[in-house]
Design a binder for these strands. Structure first.
Length: 112
DNA sequence: CACCTGACAGAAG
DNA sequence: TCTTCTGCCAGGT
């Protein structure tokens, strides 16, 4: 029930804005967790973005694979199913070179 | 309520 | 460029 935080709806609205921001990252481009949080009006909540994406349902239509850690590093556990899927998709969009563990933000970084 | 953990980030060595 | 440490925030135990 109603516990913690000013209003429960605030956190919910925040999640909605974060989801919308991730959804706004175009194919062939990638954004960092911190960037997504900032664009959504939640500066400093990079970890919240990670939490949100970690809880996405399996068949989500959200382009979660276009969200990476600072400096373009891939944050998912190397070799994990999610990591392989992310690399596969990024490779498909020409954002990641085969075998690479990070994307070139100078080249494919999202500039909203 | 204290303590731990994590799909983070930035600074320092 | 990589590793370690510190700061942060939300959830879980």
């Amino acid at each position: 029930m109603a516990r913690r935080s000013p209003h429960p709806s605030d956190a919910d609205a925040a999640r909605q804005r974060l989801l919308a921001t991730v959804d706004a990252v175009p194919p062939g481009r990638v954004a960092t967790y911190g960037q997504v949080a900032e664009e959504a009006g939640l500066p400093g909540r990079a970890r919240l973005v990670g939490r949100l994406l970690a809880g996405l349902p399996a068949g989500s239509a959200l382009p979660w694979h276009r969200v990476v850690a600072a400096g373009g590093r891939l944050a998912l556990p190397p070799g994990s199913p999610a990591d392989r899927e992310q690399r596969r998709r990024l490779r498909g969009e020409g954002s990641l070179l085969p075998g690479a563990r990070r994307v070139d933000l100078a080249r494919v970084g999202w500039r909203p």
